[in-house]
Design a protein around this nucleic acid. Structure first.
Lengths: 142, 142
DNA sequence: CTGGATATTTCATGTTGTCAAGTAAATGGG
DNA sequence: CCCATTTACTTGACAACATGAAATATCCAG
């Protein structure tokens, strides 16, 4: 199926692997600086889009709904999130960021320097090229 | 410190975030297909470089050595890895992949289509440009 | 109104991660 | 040589995350 992979492709794949590792590392580190785990930070980030049903959070995190219960529990116990009832469907609970949660999430986002700082090395034209190449890569497997 | 971020940079950052998420997802999925967790797959991958002290594995995974103990335990109990004594220093234990472990790791690597498949969409010249841009990004924060 | 589907939680269990304490072995200064 | 320190690994206690099965409450179609 996949004939001998050319060295160039292999090199790019490896670079992407390195970027993934570094991005993850920085993300966890930034979350920890705000006393959050990576999972908590991700959920809090999702909640900035507005109150969200537990089920939807599970879909976005690609995990089981029962797992989200615990994560939101922990956010709630710190006053960063709260559960609301959905007036339209009494089965669903909407997780929502509190004011403190929104602030924390925003500070966290601001401290995510990776990818932003290194990009400063590139000219605007180069960033445009990079954007288009990445978009085509992502568009290739929808 | 960071003035209003230009939209282009923001877009690239977001694209990288998407790539990271997709890469992780595919990696975990591929590992699961071989009955491995992500952490086990990563360690097994590191072991293809030859027998490695537990300490070194911890450094490469950026976690505590005590954590590696458990991961190698689980690999060992499945016959995918083994511990050897280092003749040069009797304190250290070298984790090594067994033949079965090497096979599993190789099959897993072969099933990691992400980043390889999408790259086929790009011409060789484009991949070269992409490689150089990524290298400069990574080189910027050593 | 009833039966099936859906949303959430709880519980049991396993993996990953941290930290502190303990054992064993190397190493260096007196 | 000897002892104090450092280094490598493991163990144990504990928290977070993740899955799957079962329980509860609600919705909705027929």
């Amino acid at each position: 199926m996949t004939s001998p992979i050319d060295p160039l492709t292999l090199e790019v794949v490896e670079l992407i692997g390195t970027i993934v590792a570094r991005y993850y590392e920085e993300y966890e580190e930034a979350a920890a600086k705000h006393s959050l785990t990576g999972a908590q930070a991700r959920v809090l980030g999702l909640l900035t889009g507005g109150p969200t049903p537990m089920r939807r959070l599970a879909q976005q995190l690609k995990c089981e709904p029962s797992n989200v219960t615990g994560i939101v529990d922990r956010l709630e116990s710190r006053g960063l999130a709260e559960r609301r009832l959905d007036p339209a469907d009494r089965r669903v609970k909407l997780a929502a960021a509190t004011e403190a949660g929104r602030e924390t999430s925003q500070r966290l986002r601001g401290s995510l320097d990776f990818a932003r700082e290194p990009l400063a090395e590139l000219t605007e034209e180069e960033r445009t090229v990079l954007r288009d190449l990445l978009k085509r890569m992502l568009g290739a497997t929808p």
